[in-house]
Design a protein around this nucleic acid. Structure first.
Lengths: 120, 120
DNA sequence: CGGAATCCATAGTGATACTG
DNA sequence: CAGTATCACTATGGATTCCG
């Protein structure tokens, strides 16, 4: 089961992929539009990240002749991931910066064996 | 919103962090046990990944004198993330290797504007 | 047992220039 | 407009050695 998690994670391991996914989940973008939307990214990196996302079938790439442009859009595969991504963002908002206090080891030992959470 | 996703992702960006999280979400592990459970990891890397997870308050570290050992366990902060991680794994199982077919651009343009999915 | 310190290989990222 | 090609830099991962 953890192998799936690792692979799912790796699909978005690129520095800009999450941002690209978020944008394309809203509407179709042209290459230039993405560059403007992600102001800090270089042309080189944007191309690279888009290629990887495309190879993983997370986005579609369409070339148009007139007017000359390339459009990018999400695939259904990426769309269904939206709620999970939202959950991740919510988790960070709620717990991200929190620092839970460790209880005393002595009385914590008693009930230290937890059940699984479904991921293991 | 995407900043939260990026930060949440970065907490588990280390090569072995997802595996450590999965193990510790089941029970408390000693350092040696983790090394045996994750057979390919080096002592150096295990220490490094554990330190980072600890600094992010995703795991707790407890030193015991007798018998000499160090125990690691998840924090509640990491526990609540379980279902989301499970969702990610499920997503990979269902869609991970799928390659959705891109419909013809011409009639696809008509309804190309989608609503948001909550992430962005 | 559970580290720390050092060194090295590789992958990821980025700046720049050039092209169909 | 949307790339490709180089090169440089940085982060990450890993092998090895030593330590309380």
């Amino acid at each position: 089961m953890h192998e799936e998690m690792r692979r799912a994670f790796s699909l978005f391991s690129g520095k800009w992929k999450l941002e690209v996914r978020r944008l394309l989940n809203q509407r179709i973008y042209r290459f230039v539009e993405l560059r403007k939307a992600i102001s800090d990214i270089t042309q080189h990196m944007l191309t690279a990240q888009l290629r990887e996302l495309e190879n993983d079938s997370l986005i579609w790439r369409t070339v148009f002749a007139e007017p000359p442009r390339v459009e990018y859009e999400t695939t259904p595969k990426a769309i269904v991931l939206g709620p999970t991504m939202a959950a991740l963002a919510t988790w960070w908002s709620e717990y991200g910066k929190s620092v839970p206090v460790k209880p005393n080891p002595r009385w914590r030992k008693a009930n230290s064996i937890r059940k699984g959470d479904g991921t293991g």
